[in-house]
Simulated scan of single mutants.
Amino acid sequence: MEKVADVQCFGGQQQRFKHVSLVLNCDMHFSLFLPPQAKNAKVPVLVWLSGLTCTDENFVTKAGAQRVAAELGIALLAPDTSPRGEGVADDEAYDAGMGAGFYVNATQAPWAEHYQMYDYIVQELPALLAREVQALDLKRMSIMGHSMGGHGALVIGLRNVDTYQSISAFAPICAPSQCPWGEKTLGYYLGQDRSTWQDYDASVLLASAKKSIPIRVDQGLADNFLTTQLMPEKLIAAAPQNYPLQVLQHKGYDHSYFFIASFIEAHIRFHAEFLNQ
């Protein structure tokens, strides 16, 4: 694990690392913010999954999350959104291929050789951090994300309720098996048998949930993708009775990082309730 950047921020350290991923079969980067409390004790980890076209750097430079994370003593982990590099399969459009890993384990050629993002996020990256960064308490971990990353956070959190304490999402793709982004990309990565898509559809997973995990979703009502791609109403309808899901709607907000920056503090404080217990 090679440290390629390290700058002080709100008394903590904003770092960037490069490493060889055996799961993805390529070199990967991720960003990590260590709050000042990490100098003296282990701190909980809040994972951020970014959306289409993003890298590990979008969130740490645009969201303004470090201030409240430093106050609350929470580390922020921001992985990349897909495998990258020479020989990694790609697509000419922005919504598949590099920058669009969709946080699934691909089964179809040519994607399966590299696109194993689910295993990378759930298994390989936490194991790497457990070995290399002693300041992290990986038994206290929550997950959040935006758009495609919101989809990833919901799916990964719902499938691993004993690993994560809480989930949150900004403008997530709530029913990828029923929207153009998901139909295209899941078809690419998993094939045309739609039954294989169900494990990566948050609405399907929530409807069959056997154990609860607190979830917060924020959605801007001026989001251009609201009705065609995101469909939060599918998630609301799928939730079992009394499930701890809150979906907050915000008039005038769009799909951008201006929306994320406006409510990121509320999300981190939401997670802190469960991470700091």
Rank of each mutant, 00 (worst) to 15 (best):
F258H: 13
K211E: 11
Y253L: 11
Y164D: 02
L154N: 05
A106M: 07
T185I: 15
P180Y: 04
E183W: 00
V88Y: 13
P244C: 05
T55Q: 13
Y253A: 07
H267F: 08
V68Y: 11
N105S: 05
I213W: 00
P44Y: 05
F17L: 09
P44E: 01
L129T: 07
Y164C: 01
R159L: 11
D6T: 07
L52M: 15
V68G: 07
S31E: 03
M231Q: 15
H151K: 08
A96C: 13
F263H: 15
I264T: 11
E113K: 12
A96D: 12
H250R: 00
L158S: 04
V45Q: 00
Q8I: 13
E86R: 14
G157Y: 03
F10K: 12
Q178F: 03
D27Y: 14
E92Q: 12
P79V: 06
E233Q: 14
D90I: 02
G101E: 02
V43P: 01
K251N: 13
L205R: 09
A100Q: 06
Y257C: 05
Y189W: 13
N58E: 11
A5E: 12
G64V: 02
R67M: 09
K3H: 08
G187V: 10
H250D: 03
F17S: 04
T227V: 14
L186A: 00
P172E: 01
L125V: 00
Y120D: 02
L154R: 10
L226A: 10
H255P: 05
P44D: 11
G87S: 01
I173E: 02
L129W: 10
G182E: 10
L46E: 03
K234G: 02
A153C: 04
E124H: 10
Y200W: 06
C9S: 09
W197F: 05
F270A: 04
P44M: 09
G64S: 00
Y188D: 01
Q123A: 12
V20K: 15
A93C: 15
L129D: 09
G85D: 04
L158V: 13
S195C: 08
C174T: 07
N58I: 06
Q219P: 08
D6I: 05
K211Q: 13
G152Q: 06
L248D: 10
N58V: 04
L158G: 14
M28E: 07
H146G: 07
Q241T: 13
V88W: 04
L235I: 08
A75F: 14
V217S: 03
V47H: 05
D201Q: 07
Q15H: 09
D201H: 04
T163K: 15
